Simulated assay, not measured.
Amino acid sequence: MGKIFLLMGKSSSGKDTIYRELMRKDEINLKKVVSYTTRPMREGETDGVQYLFKNEEEYKKLKADNKIIEERAYDTKCGIWRYFTADDGQIDLSDGDYLIIGTLESYCYIRDYFGKENVVPVYIDTNARTRLERAMHREDKQENPRYDEMCRRFLADEEDFSETKLSEAKIEKRFENNAEIDDCIKEITEYIAQKIR
């Protein structure tokens, strides 16, 4: 029986880079799960690669058919944008192991849906100063930097990944990503390899 490894951490903790590197590791051979969104496709995105793009009606149909495993909604200036994981056949635990990027909340929903013995949390822990420096560096590169949004995300993550919530979700293992990301990736790769043996 395969496992779902759910990669999570606060913003600017290095999740996207770690995810890309883990997906390249032949020794753990993880499969990708593409999440859904109702937000408009951005320039350079491809349906089925970054997300599976659905409209509100398609989302409602999946919801009515009890296919939504977990979801998050954000009230934006352009309306409500939904991000969700659906039971659409992408995950077949009899056919391998999977890697998903998510939030602490999505981890809990996916764990409860597939069973705690089948879902393994991979929590990336990065100190606040390092995260702020990375976030500032990333925002500085944007054509229209949104420092206000950067700060909002930073503060929201402090609440969403509070020690109380981590404890309630029984997140005990942490992977430090404060200095050399390669060391963090190596440690996670070895951890996953042990879990899938």
Rank of each mutant, 00 (worst) to 15 (best):
K63G: 13
R129S: 15
E71D: 15
D26H: 14
E43Q: 10
R20H: 14
L30A: 04
I91A: 03
R134L: 11
Y147T: 04
D97A: 01
Y107P: 09
D26C: 14
Y83K: 09
G48V: 02
N177H: 07
D112F: 09
E43D: 14
G102W: 01
I68H: 11
G89H: 05
D65W: 03
K61I: 10
L93H: 08
R42K: 15
Q194V: 00
V120S: 04
I101H: 07
L155Y: 11
R129M: 14
K32H: 04
H137I: 00
E143Q: 11
V119Q: 11
L104R: 06
T130P: 14
E71H: 13
D112N: 14
E21Q: 14
K186C: 02
Y36D: 02
V120Y: 02
T38G: 01
R42I: 04
Y123T: 04
L30Y: 07
S13A: 08
K54Y: 01
E139A: 08
S12E: 10
E57N: 12
A86D: 01
A179W: 05
I192F: 00
L166Y: 11
E133H: 09
A193E: 03
R82Y: 08
V33P: 05
S167W: 08
E139C: 10
T164V: 10
R134D: 09
N55I: 00
R197A: 01
G89N: 07
R131F: 03
C108D: 12
R134Q: 14
C151S: 13
I196S: 02
A193V: 00
Y74D: 14
F161R: 09
D112Q: 12
R131S: 08
E57T: 03
G115E: 04
K25P: 12
E172P: 06
R131P: 11
E105A: 03
I4G: 08
E158Y: 12
A179Y: 12
L132F: 13
D92K: 09
K61L: 12
G9R: 04
Y59E: 01
K170T: 04
R153W: 01
N178T: 06
D160R: 15
F154S: 09
K63Q: 15
D140T: 02
D148G: 06
E45G: 00
W81S: 06
K195L: 00
D97T: 00
E45H: 03
M8N: 00
I28L: 03
V119C: 08
A156V: 01
R131Y: 03
E58Q: 09
E71K: 15
G89E: 07
A179P: 12
N118L: 02
D125E: 15
N66H: 14
N118E: 07
F84R: 08
E70C: 13
E117I: 07
V33G: 08
F175N: 13
N144W: 11
R152D: 03
G9P: 01
I68F: 08
S35A: 05
Y83F: 05
W81G: 02
N29C: 07
M136E: 14
I100R: 08
D125N: 15
R24K: 15
D95C: 05
Q90P: 02
E27T: 07
K67C: 13
E117M: 11
S35I: 00
S11Q: 03
L99S: 11
D182L: 12
S167A: 10
E133V: 04
R82Q: 11
V34E: 03
L99A: 08
I28W: 04
A135H: 10
T17S: 15
E57I: 00
E117T: 11
L155A: 05
P121M: 02
C151K: 14
G115P: 05
Y19P: 06
Y51L: 02
A128R: 13
